[in-house]
Every structure is written in C-alpha cells, then in structure tokens.
Design a protein around this nucleic acid. Sequence first.
DNA 1: GATGAATGAGGTTTCATTCAT
DNA 2: AATGAATGAAACCTCATTCAT
Lengths: 213, 213, 213, 213
Amino acid sequence: MQTERSQSPKPPRREREKQRQRQEILATALTLFSEKGYHNVSMHEIAANAEFAIGTLYKFFQNKEDLYKTLVLEQCDLFDQAFAKVLDAPGDEVVKLRDYVRVKGAMFREHMAFIRLFMAESRGASFNINAGLDASVRQRYYDFLKRFAAVFENGMAKNRFKRIADPFDLAVAMDSVVNSFLLMWIDDPRKHPFPEDPDKILKLFFDGILASR
Amino acid sequence: MQTERSQSPKPPRREREKQRQRQEILATALTLFSEKGYHNVSMHEIAANAEFAIGTLYKFFQNKEDLYKTLVLEQCDLFDQAFAKVLDAPGDEVVKLRDYVRVKGAMFREHMAFIRLFMAESRGASFNINAGLDASVRQRYYDFLKRFAAVFENGMAKNRFKRIADPFDLAVAMDSVVNSFLLMWIDDPRKHPFPEDPDKILKLFFDGILASR
Amino acid sequence: MQTERSQSPKPPRREREKQRQRQEILATALTLFSEKGYHNVSMHEIAANAEFAIGTLYKFFQNKEDLYKTLVLEQCDLFDQAFAKVLDAPGDEVVKLRDYVRVKGAMFREHMAFIRLFMAESRGASFNINAGLDASVRQRYYDFLKRFAAVFENGMAKNRFKRIADPFDLAVAMDSVVNSFLLMWIDDPRKHPFPEDPDKILKLFFDGILASR
Amino acid sequence: MQTERSQSPKPPRREREKQRQRQEILATALTLFSEKGYHNVSMHEIAANAEFAIGTLYKFFQNKEDLYKTLVLEQCDLFDQAFAKVLDAPGDEVVKLRDYVRVKGAMFREHMAFIRLFMAESRGASFNINAGLDASVRQRYYDFLKRFAAVFENGMAKNRFKRIADPFDLAVAMDSVVNSFLLMWIDDPRKHPFPEDPDKILKLFFDGILASR
DNA sequence: GATGAATGAGGTTTCATTCAT
DNA sequence: AATGAATGAAACCTCATTCAT
C-alpha cells in the first residue's frame, strides 16, 4: 500500500521523504539487531536510536517480525544483485569465479552487520522468528546456487573444467569454503586476515591434493 | 553431620535417579530449543514437557542460560569425543578423512535436534545469549580444526598429499564442505539425500577441477 | 529533533498531569506499605489500588525499591521542612521547644501512614531493603538532631537553660520522649490521648524530679 | 504439646536433646534474621546454618511466622526477667533506676542481635508479620511500663521524687531516653560510646533544665 | 500524520511447605 | 523420627502493541 505511487495527489517529495525515513529505520534496526540479536533489541530501542516515535515504526511495519523480515529480504536483494552482475555476464569461467570471490569479499566487508545478523539468527531449519522467512530466504539461496552451478556447467562444456563432480555440488562446496574463510575473518580479523587473493581459495579446488602413487 | 546415616553415604540409586532426571530435562530442553529457538521457549514450557515442577528445573540449573549452556557444552563433548576417536587414532590419512566424513554424518543423523539448535543460535559473532558460551565453543572449534589440520600435515609429510595449500586452510575448507552437504540434507532430506558415500565429498578435494591447457 | 514541534516544548498540562499520577501512585503505595509492610505489598497490588496498569508504575519508578525510597525521602523532606521552619526562625528557645512539640504532633497526625511505615521498616541497623536508604535517612536524622541541639545551646548561652547536660544529649532525650508519646497515641489513641498541651512533655525536662534532701 | 514432660515413657534425655536442638534453631534464626531481616532469610538458609534438614524445622515450628514469634517472645522473656529482678526487689528508688539503666545496657550488649531484629521489624503498629505478635508484645511492654511507673510512684510516696508529672509518663519518658542512647550506641559505637555512667542519663531527669528567672 | 503514554500478557525466578522414603 | 526432593503459587519486571491527542 505504501509503495504504490501512481496516484497523482501525493507529491513525490513526500513519497521520497517517506522512503528515506523507512531506510533510516531499517538501517538502525540492522545495526542493533546485528549487535545484540533480534530478541535483545526492543522496538523502543530501535525507535529511540532512529529518532522516531514508537508509533511511527508501526506506520511502516506491521510488527517487529515484519520489520525484521523486510530488513533481511532487502539485504538479500543487495547480495543477489551484486552476485548476479558477476555471474550472469558473459566471460571466462575462471575469471568469473575469481570475480565472485572478490565481490563476495567486498560485500561481506561492506555489510558486516548484516552478515553477523544473518549468521546468528537465520541459519538452521525452519523455526525461530524465521518461521516464514526461512522458506523464502532458503529458496533464494538455492536459486543462487543453481546460477552458480551454471558457471561450472558452462566451464565443463567448454572443457575449462574437468567433470570431477556434479556442478551443483561444486557450487555448494566452493561457496561454503568462501563463506568459511570470510566468516573466520569477521570472527577475528587479526588471526584470520582477509583473503585478499581469491586464488588462495580457488586453488583448493583447482589443484587436487591427492598425490599420484 | 546430619547427612551421614547408616545408609551408604550417597545411595547410588538416588544419584542415578538424579542423573536420569537431569538428562530428561536436558533432552526436553534440547527438543524444544531446537524446534522454537532459545527465546521462544519458556522455562514453564520445558518443565511441563519434561513433566517436572518448575522449581525442579532450578534445582538442577541455576537459570535458563545455565541450562542452555550446559546443554550445548555436553553435546559438543559428544561430538568432540567422536571426532577425536577417528582423528587421533593411527592410520592412513585418506582413511581418516573418509572415516571422519562417515562419523560426522552419523553424528548429524543422531543429533539432528542439536545441530538445528546450534546452527540457529550459536553462529555469528559474540553476542546473543551465547555471550559467554561463544568464547569457549568457538575456541573448541578452532582446537578441533587444528587437530583436523594435523591429518593433512601428516599426510603431506608422508607424501600422501600434495602441498597445494596450508594444512589449516585445507581443514577449514573440507570441514565447511562436509557441513554444507550435511546441512542441506537436514534441511530437506528428499532434495538433498544423505551423502552415503564419503568419497563423493572427498573427491572434490582429491582431484583438481582445472583442466590442463 | 523529533520532539520539537510547534507546541510549546513540554506542554505544562501534560507535565502537571504526570505529577498528579506520580503522587497518586506514591500515596497509594504509602497507604499499602504502612498497612502491610514493604514485603507484603506487591507491585500488582499497588497498581490495582492506584488504578494504573502495572507497566505504568515502572514508567515512574525503576523498580519496587526505587518507589519505596522515593516515597520515604519525599516524606522525610516534608518533616525536615516543617521542623526547619520552627527551629531556624529567631525567637525564644522555650517557645521554640513548645512549637516544635506542637508541630511534630500535627505532622504525626497528618502523616500517620508514613510514621507507621517508617517505624516499621526503617529502624534498626543497616540491612533490609533500607540498605542504601538507611545511610542517608540516618544521616538526615543526625543532622536534624544537631540543629535541635543548637536550640539548647543557644538557650544555655542566653542563660535560659541550665547546663545540666550536653546540648546534643538533651536534644536526643527530648526528641525521643516526644516520639514516644506520639507513638503511644498512634498505637492506641483512646488509652493514650494526643498530648494536646506541649508543656506536659516539656515539664519533664524543665523541672527536675529529684527532691532536695 | 512438645513442652509437656510429665509423661513417663519419654526418657528425659531425649527430651533434653530435643530442647537443645530447638534452641540451636532459634539461635541460628535470630542471628540470620537480625543480620538480614525476616523477609530476606529463607527457611532453607536457617536449616542449612543450623545444620538440620528443612523438615526438622517444621517439626519444631508450624511455619516461618511461628518460628519468628517464638523467637521474639522467648527473647522478651529474658528481658522481662532481667528487669523484674531489678525493679521488683525492695530498695531505694534512685538505686533502682540506676540499676535498671545498667542492666538494660548489659542486656543490649549481650543481645544485640535481638535488639536489631526487634527494632527493625517490630516497631510500628499492628501489621507486618507482627500481625499477631504485636498484640502481645505491645501488651507486655505496657505491663512493663506500669511496673516501671511503680518505681516513680513509690519514690513519690516516699518523697524521694517530686510529683512533677504522672508516674506512668515519667516511666515512658525515662525508658525512651535510655533506649535512644543505647540505640545510638548500637548504631555507631564509635560516635556514640556506650553510656557507662547511668547517672549521665538520670541527671537529665533529676535536675530540671529551666533556669529560674 | 505523528506521537508516546498506557496497557497487561507473559517471562524468569524464589521459597514456604509437604510427604514419601 | 528425620530427611530433603519436589512442588507450584506468586513475586518482580519487560516490552510489543494500541489509540487518544
């Protein structure tokens, strides 16, 4: 309802202002949620930090859960879009993998708050506040994995990659490894420095470890 | 003075009974926590499901957080012990990796409730209820990774593996991939069947994917 | 930023209304505490009697103890001010003593509920809920006694009183006697009627009881 | 019921042992109550400190309140007896007053824990746990005051004292002054040293303070 | 439209008391 | 007779949400 804007009487300036406020609330909530966890942040706290009245929050979002879900989904969109730009463009598959690792690293750096929040609350099965959220978030992730798998599929078709495994499995594997290294970095940037060189990770898959007998 | 009687000081039956009750509470709590998340389960709910009075729970655990931490740490011990048995025994490194994947799969199967709980609440950085928990659990995981890395280190020393990467990084990578496949299975056992054959996963690292030009 | 509007910043009517509510809560709490004692009155009971929701109480006072301390300190202020008016004014010392007894009687009459509460919970050493309260309340009483002693000191300087004892001791003695008579009256107004005539008490100190041999 | 001992079957040793336990419980309770206040001491705490099982306490006392009342009444008896010995003996009235002050001081010294408890919980009107207690404790105090008043009455009859006031009022006054000095001493023994010399207090009443004009 | 005072359900925890052993 | 495990009512307090202004 609040996103319709084809009506003429509402001046677009009002509308833009509203969107700005909405984003401000979401940004504040993201920061707080990621610092203290969903259940340890009250709506009052969000309102106070965003410098709005508590009632105003309920003008934008039906309830706390709605605010949370919106927040997560919008952030997911950002990630999806960034990855799509890399993966869907034409080009060499090895370059794509390298770019993907680089872009994912950049996104983690830029959106650390969200990563923390996401990792803390949204993993696992269908429960928690995520009840309804998981369904869609999970689906989106699988959709992403399919597109990521296409890179391997194409690479194999072009004989750039060997067919050592199912492309989807390769996608799962490589993404989980990238995530692990990035999470370790977030966890303790000193002990586990940011993997500047994408190839450090890629090599784990490019060269097999098994010595020939 | 007043507890010493003619009975053997601490009747072992009483003690065993107490342990049984304790385990019952922990089991009930694990189920509920894993289904609904820490914050969505009340102590009353646990008491009712375990068929104890609420006060009895507080005889065993100082408070809700203590119950939760105990729960997680006891489960972690189980996993640690199972993995230690596989990794610390002498033997061929490739066999060890294969056994590790097999045992981890079996543990995930047997302790699904805990896996769900753990994935849902314990990831992420140091906040949430996990505040104090994270510190130790995280450390334990890194300790495990080091022992896992030793397998690769030894394998390299024996020329069983090629030195394509740092052993610790290899440990991180392989474990994250195993986890990913197991989590996908937990998530939707139909779409992502349980990886019966450990080699399916191992091959991802054994053979490189990069085709020689 | 969000609280500044076109209205005068803090509408005085709102503010006055708030103060009225606050006083209502304090008055209700005073009555209940004095009737049943601090530990035998629940916050729900106060809320119900004051016809507020329980949450509203916590808008005004951080917790039960805060409510109690506020209550006691505000009442103490009333007494301090009333006594200060009598003792600090210039004038004959005998008149001052007479006025003090009269005013104290009037205050006891008017604030019986508080007297009961104070006598019941605040005497004794430094423990109980009074932990922190005692410190200051006790100090205030000693401060008062010093000002009361000054009356005797001045009277002695003017040769209105004989130097039969330390002025501070005289202050302690006279005040305790006045309190005793007033407490007996509160205890059972029929058996121990209100000491209308201050001189009845003063005479106990004015004339010695020892017959000359 | 437990104090009857005319029956023959119960060996007196058992009976004596029981009494010893009872006293142990009461002594422990007195210490704890006086340190932390009635409501801040749990039955478990008393049981643990007295080294009895919680059930044993309920063999001796119907409930917590019963334990408290018994405690207070037994201590009151001690005081009553000590004062009676001084006041009811024949002798000069001035000596009696002096002895009374001395004995009261000694009793306060010896039974500080009880004094603290009594002052903290038992003053004030008829409420609190004292509900039933006050009735009798208060009556006992008035009975005492009457006996104390008799000293003044007798002294007046013998022309030892002047009839400057009602003997009962004199009793009230003198006792409240003695109490005040003793309480100040308990409160802060350094600032308000123990009034070693009874005459310091008696003089306040023996000599009038009013200077003859 | 925005505000924030007011609400009250529901959370965690304590502790007096009972009763099977 | 003594024990102490078990009970559950009831305490304090938080916070998502509503609605009169």
